[in-house]
Structures are given as C-alpha cells and as structure tokens.
Amino acid sequence: MEPGLKKIQNEIKIGLTIVIALLIAIIGFRLMQDVPIFRPSLQLYTVFDRVDGISVGTSVYLSGVKIGSVNRVELAGPDSVRVVLNLSYTEGIPVGSRAYIESADLIGGKRVRIHHSGQDEMLPDGGYIEGVYDHGAFAELQSFAEDVKPDIQRSTGNLADVLSQIDEILKDGGKEDLRGTIATLSSSSRQIDRLLQERSADLEESIISLKHIMQNLDTLSTGRQSQLDDILENLETTSQELGVISRELGGVSSELHVMMQQINSGEGTLGRLIQDPSLYENLDSLAVNLKNISRKMEDEPGHFLKHMRLIEIF
C-alpha cells in the first residue's frame, strides 16, 4: 500500500470514528431526554405552586395519550416552580388549556395531564399554559386511608379477638351446646307462635280498645290543654330517666362482654344456660304473664293507666 494513502486512511478512520461517536452521543442524549430527534417540537412553559414527583423526563398526557415530557424543572420563587414541557403534538394546544399534575400509579408516580380547552386559538411555541397541582382521587384516597388507618387497625384487632373467642367456644364442646340451644330456641319460637295464634282474638280486642282510648285522648286533648302540658312535662322527666336507663344498658352490654369472656373461660357455657329447662319455664310463664296482663288491661285499664296519671283524664 502506498504510504501516503495509508496515512490518509488513518485520518479518515479517526475522523469518522469521532464524528460518528459525537453524532450517536447527541442522538442518544436527545433520545434519553425525550426530545424528538429530527422534528422541531412545541415547547410550553407552566408554573405550579409545587411539583412533588415531577422531574425531567416525566411524561405528559393528553386524553390519556403520551404527547411529550418534562424538559426542565426550576424554582422560580419560594412558592412557584417553572416547568418546561416538550410536546410532539402537531395539532397544537389551544389557549386556555390547563396542565394538571396528577398521580400516575399507586406507588406515588406522577404525570402531567393537559386538559384541552377546546378553543380555536392555539398557544405559540414557548407559550404559557396554566398549571394546577391536582391531588387527584388517588391522593384523596391516600389521605383518607391515612386518617382511618388507626381505627381500622384497632377494629381488626378486636375482630381478631372476637373470632378467637368464638373459636375457643366452638372448640370446648360448645358446638354441641349451640346446636341444642338453636333447637330449643326454635321450639320456643314455635310455642310462642302457637300462643300468639291462640290469643289473637284477645290481642285484637286490646288493640281496638287502645284505638278507642286514643280517640278519647284526641277529643280530650283539645279541652285539657293545661293538663296535657303537665303530662308532657312528666314525659320529659320520663325521657330523662330513659337516658339513665340507656346508660345502665351500656353497663349491661359491658357486663355481656364480661359474660362472653366468662363463657370463654368455661365458667358455665351459653349452651348450658339456654339448655337449662328453667329457661323454657320462664319463657312459658312470661307468656302466661303477658296473657294475664293483657286480660287485666282489658278488664280494668284504669289500674294500669293510674300509674301514668292518665287516670285523671278519664
């Protein structure tokens, strides 16, 4: 080979290598920064009060389609951040459109969404588009979840306790007891049903009497305004007493809880309690008493109503 030619070839080799490497580096750079390589792009800028989760390269979407990316993020002031968007959307973005920062996924990724205003006039290259930091549905859900998290934690803890207690009950032969209890309950309810059917005529009469009383009351109320006021006053006291009762009921429910624990710890099981024949007898006698009461009410309502001082009205 001619020596001169070889030297020229070497220089060409090196020149080409360096130029191609530079070219590839520039193309790679633009590719990585998501700048269209050959086509000039539309550049818009916007200002947000905050840009958490937004960085160079974050995607920009229009109607769910990616049309560009964030090119630059810089602090313009203590409470405003200037963000430059590179867009490859050839149709143009109309004046009055807005750029929202919103959540892109569950793990906190963010993206920029452009809301199309629909106006005819388009923003020029380098133009300004209004920016809104959108907390988004997911963000709200997240903050809500933050608030209720302790409650949920406590609840699940309690639930676990209850479940384990039930489990314990079922384990200590409680299954048998429960089955018996349910059987007894169903026979009890059948008996109550039968009882009610037998006494339906009496009940009907009672209801009719009550209706009658109500009508009397209606006619009375107009004439005895002052007395009614007294009655209302009494009712008020009664309702206060009811408040006391409901508090006592709260106590009862806590006692119930203690009872559950006792059941759990084996101090007499629920099953044994319900299986006890005396329960049925009690229920039976309760029904008998109810019957007696209703009969008495029928026979001499004044006896009952006396206690409510309604007797004075009659």
């Binding site: 750079f29 990585m32 920064q33 998501d34 960085s55 160079v56 390269g57 974050t58 995607s59 990316s69």
Partner: peptide, 13 residues
C-alpha cells in the same frame, strides 16, 4: 425506555 428516561441525567454522562 421510560425507566431509562426517568433517571437519565446529563450529569451522569
């Protein structure tokens, strides 16, 4: 490419 672009910074290069 999305992942690569997210972390790409000229300083790294």
């Amino acid at each position: 490419m999305l992942g690569a672009r997210q972390v790409f910074s000229p300083a790294d290069v």
